[in-house]
Design a protein around this nucleic acid. Sequence first.
DNA 1: GTGGTCTAGACCACA
DNA 2: GTGGTCTAGACCACG
Lengths: 120, 120, 120, 120
Amino acid sequence: MTWILDKKRPLCPQISEQLCILIASGQLKAGDRLMSVRDVAVAASVTPNTVQKSFEQLEQTGVIYSKRGSGWYVSENSEIAKTVLSGLIREKTKAYLDDMRSLGLSIEQILTNIKEYSYE
Amino acid sequence: MTWILDKKRPLCPQISEQLCILIASGQLKAGDRLMSVRDVAVAASVTPNTVQKSFEQLEQTGVIYSKRGSGWYVSENSEIAKTVLSGLIREKTKAYLDDMRSLGLSIEQILTNIKEYSYE
Amino acid sequence: MTWILDKKRPLCPQISEQLCILIASGQLKAGDRLMSVRDVAVAASVTPNTVQKSFEQLEQTGVIYSKRGSGWYVSENSEIAKTVLSGLIREKTKAYLDDMRSLGLSIEQILTNIKEYSYE
Amino acid sequence: MTWILDKKRPLCPQISEQLCILIASGQLKAGDRLMSVRDVAVAASVTPNTVQKSFEQLEQTGVIYSKRGSGWYVSENSEIAKTVLSGLIREKTKAYLDDMRSLGLSIEQILTNIKEYSYE
DNA sequence: GTGGTCTAGACCACA
DNA sequence: GTGGTCTAGACCACG
């Protein structure tokens, strides 16, 4: 597993998101055991502390759960991950739209920009 | 001047951006005097300190400059504001695109989301 | 009289200094009447308020004095202007030296810089 | 680290300059972690706010950068600090020369003053 | 623990 | 009146 993190943004949510993607895309299935906190920390070049918090946040949304002394496992209802992901996307997109509109752009201009910058 | 600020985001850059828009759109022209730091602070319900920081940031990009004891003025080259604005838009759009892509979305999916959420 | 003021620095002390120079260099002699506050203000593109303050500050150091309803005159002891000027120079030079030293420069490096930059 | 600040001048740029010197002189190397904002604040007897501003100004020139929740680090290209420093020196020296010239001094007189006052 | 942002209020020199 | 600088203290998310 390659962990490509953008160092300019908070690491903790990025790890949560990447795990969500793994589950939503089926690379990790219901009941599967996740990598250990320490392994992820090493692979992603982060402190275990940060990974631990990511896992705990995913537990709160019901995406994964922990077995004492055994590790972390994907929730039986793996649809939750997809829901969380699409909620994230929706939230971020609306924030972006609000931002662009407050900068005076119309929806047409926004779409034009997206198309233009997506080629760079 | 109406100051609509999103309290969920840092206020300082929002003020800078709104001023940039005023200048780029020609509502404030080269050499024009800006509202005083204190007046903007009252109008935007922010502390003068925050406005001061906004103005200083705009000064660094060359959009405005200050005259001691007199006020802040729009830079002679008012084109700078436009450049700064489009730079901002570009930067934010690219960050958004990177974000969406790392969440596993294709450019088509991104465009679909934008269109969908822009109606809400 | 040409008034070349550096707009980046406080205007009031600059006017005081220029007047001091006029007196110290003999272009204005003991007992001579100075230009009116208003004339200086127009010539130097400053508000009369600023010129007024410059004159008052020069009065405090004894360089000039005012006759009610008549104007401002060079003090009988025109040596005072020279003293004030050299005091200023000394003060500014010591401030500059302190500044350069706190930036880690030796006196030799300072002299080298002065010579180098004086040709630009 | 000893923080000797001249209370007569703005503290914020003084802190920036001292840090620049530490980096330019190699006492802090590329990638090194700086002291925390709070620690510098205590050591220099200033508020954390002032130090934060100093660090942010150095960040804008590319001398240092911040890692959220972790600290501030010397930029990989530690040559920038030297460039910034010499730029500062040059700028201040030219301002001083302009000032002295507008006070009517020749370059020879300026050099004489420097030599004389550097012994006091 | 760290940086990041903001509030509240003060003081100064300048115009 | 204006900008410029600083203090003091608060809250937040991140590591």
